[in-house]
Design a protein around this nucleic acid. Structure first.
Lengths: 221, 221
DNA sequence: AGGCTTCTCCCCATTTATGGGGAGAAGAAA
DNA sequence: TTTCTTCTCCCCATAAATGGGGAGAAGCCT
């Protein structure tokens, strides 16, 4: 008898967890350890002594703490944990961000059923695993980096935003105007406008609409 | 032997459909007929001769056509169909909108597992069914109490946009300003500004940032 | 014929946003 | 110490967006 693979599932929709359990139960080598409904529950579970799982299935969008924060917490506390991201997002930037945060697998919810068992077994053995669509966009982005020019394209050279700028960007994306942002952050209006100017310049966009779209696409809000 | 209840499930996440099937399979009186991943698939399925289901489990957020559009299509074509909404939103306005569109049940994804079988059986008998949390907010609203806003985005119950408004919205989301949009569409600036005003009102957003975020989230751009 | 929506454009006014420049204080890093 | 970044705030000015109102023309539906 082979050693069982113990799995922890984290998603804010319980019915989806039930679905994953149903699919996984068709395989005798895998067993669900426990589950979490928020990122904070995940962190608390793994912080508790004696709790460990061979594989963590992790959704990105969860209340309280999201998937990004969970992985950052693992890295900060030097916790080695095999993680498979189960997400509805197939955006290259998100996939790359998750990979840089150390996830071992990434499958989309669209075709999770056919991939989840194989993904768990691969990641439990220390391999990587990506569903077809993710493989596809990863290959494309890989090919896209070898542009004939040799120089990195502009969008790879984004200037990093400061903490204050990020705060202002978040509030802009929530449809607050400068006086309101100044009030919320206890700043002068002219200060907020200075941050606006720097944001427009750094992110190479034309107006607040460009800032908001950047924020949405980069999951800043 | 009792007559079986045939159920059609529509949700854009296949893993969730698999979960529902797993839960429903525990009951011998209910059988899954077929499933759909988009609103368009639902409509096409029910339009096909010979296809019918006793109960339709319907998600609200789906690509191509959402749950609202599916119910509107049923009403317009005088199709009598028992529908249970399965949603992650527990916002009173959405529940009321769905009821006015003729849905017979409404359960949230948070506790779908414990309710879905009973909901199907009740609705198949012509009764109504709501999960606890939905019952609670419905009772409050009937009693005339103030019901706090739910978790749905403000712009969920959108007024339908005209073709022209959609054109303007797309260009706004591409960071063009009013003079530029007027030029591209061969309109006067004041006309573009009129469309802007109507967009802000219809989509219940505060400024162009809100418009852009609406456009991104609804895949208009 | 009357009502309806859509599209077009105008008036008014105020508030915001953008674009250019500069500058001081605090703190970190060299 | 000097240099650098970050954060703060100011000046100037113009462009753009918002908010209120109205109104004519064209087309559709009943």
């Amino acid at each position: 008898m082979r050693k069982k693979i113990y799995v922890h599932v984290a998603d804010d929709h319980k019915i989806l967890i039930e679905g994953i359990i149903a699919v996984i139960n068709t395989d005798k080598d895998i067993e669900i350890n426990d589950y979490s409904l928020t990122g904070k529950e995940v962190i608390d579970w793994f912080d508790k002594k004696g709790n460990k799982a061979d594989v963590l299935i992790l959704d990105i969008t969860m209340p309280i703490l999201d998937g990004f924060e969970v992985l950052k917490h693992f890295n900060k506390n030097n916790i080695k944990q095999n993680v498979i991201i189960l997400s509805s997002y197939d955006d290259i930037k998100i996939v790359q961000e998750m990979l840089s945060l150390g996830c071992k697998g990434y499958i989309t919810k669209n075709n999770a059923g056919e991939h989840i068992v194989n993904a768990i077994k691969a990641v439990a053995k220390g391999e990587q695993y990506f569903s077809n669509d993710i493989q596809s966009i990863l290959l494309k982005s890989f090919a896209g980096q070898h542009v004939p020019n040799g120089d990195a394209p502009d969008n790879f050279l984004k200037e990093t935003l400061t903490e204050r700028e990020l705060e202002v960007l978040k509030l802009i994306s929530k449809q607050y105007n400068s006086p309101e942002i100044a009030d919320k952050l206890s700043l002068g209006i002219s200060t907020v406008d200075s941050h606006r100017k720097n944001l427009l310049r750094k992110l190479k966009v034309k107006n607040s609409v460009g800032l908001a779209i950047y924020a949405v696409k980069n999951k800043i809000i």
